[in-house]
């Protein structure tokens, strides 16, 4: 869980930095998208780096989900008889819900996101357009509901990360003794930065800063 999660967090950081290039203009953004496909050329055939990244990501996602499912199944086996009284959370309260149900929401979002931005299937501009145009069209003010969906999904990602990153520090045995509190804070910062970073582009498009 922690290791695959860490891979995905690293990807998210890269992905966010790439997204932010949209503020440097269409060429910069499109150029970056192009570089993703051509990186390593000519030493390597086209798309090699991208394909490797994609494979690593798919493996990480699958393993992450598989771990989550097996943890949930173990939990179900460990408590075959449920409590009659509604269990009231005594801790922060949201963790399990955000991680399990939030995880499903995020998975659905990723599917939509790929259809929208990568494959362009549900994007008004379609697959043929440049990434910049797809982005601008996708979050056009008229499609506010798409942006709203993104915002909700990203907040969910943020909550997932806030618990997930800290949880990874715990699982890897890092959050002990004096480092417990700082790492807990760091997890919150990572989550916040990623949410803000990812939301910057769609919001900028929606309010017309980027056209």
């Amino acid at each position: 869980m922690a290791v695959t999660g860490a891979v995905l967090v690293l990807f998210l950081i890269g992905h966010m930095l790439g997204n932010l290039k949209i503020f440097l203009g269409a060429d910069s953004f499109n150029g970056y998208a192009e570089w993703l496909r051509t990186a390593g050329e000519p030493a390597l055939p086209g798309r090699t780096m991208l394909t490797i990244t994609e494979i690593v990501l798919v493996v990480a996602v699958v393993l992450h989900m598989w771990s989550a499912v097996s943890l949930a199944r173990r939990a179900a086996r460990a408590r075959p008889v449920k409590y009659a009284a509604r269990r009231r959370s005594q801790a922060s309260g949201y963790a399990t819900h955000v991680m399990r149900y939030g995880g499903i929401v995020i998975a659905l979002f990723v599917v939509w996101h790929l259809l929208d931005m990568t494959l362009g299937v549900v994007n008004p501009e379609g697959h043929a357009a440049t990434p910049y145009d797809r982005m601008v069209a996708g979050f056009a003010p008229s499609r506010w509901w798409v942006t709203a969906f993104y915002v909700i999904a990203l907040v969910m990602v943020g909550l997932h990360l806030r618990h997930g990153v800290w949880s990874a520090f715990q699982t890897l045995g890092l959050a002990r003794g004096r480092s417990h509190r700082p790492l807990r804070a760091l997890a919150g910062v990572v989550a916040l930065v990623l949410v803000v970073g990812f939301l910057a582009a769609p919001v900028a498009v929606m309010i017309g800063v980027i056209k």
Partner: peptide, 15 residues
């Protein structure tokens, strides 16, 4: 023993 896995929810330490 068949105990579940830890997902660091913190419910344990709270009670």
């Amino acid at each position: 023993e068949g105990f579940g896995g830890c997902t660091n929810t913190g419910e344990c330490t709270a009670v």
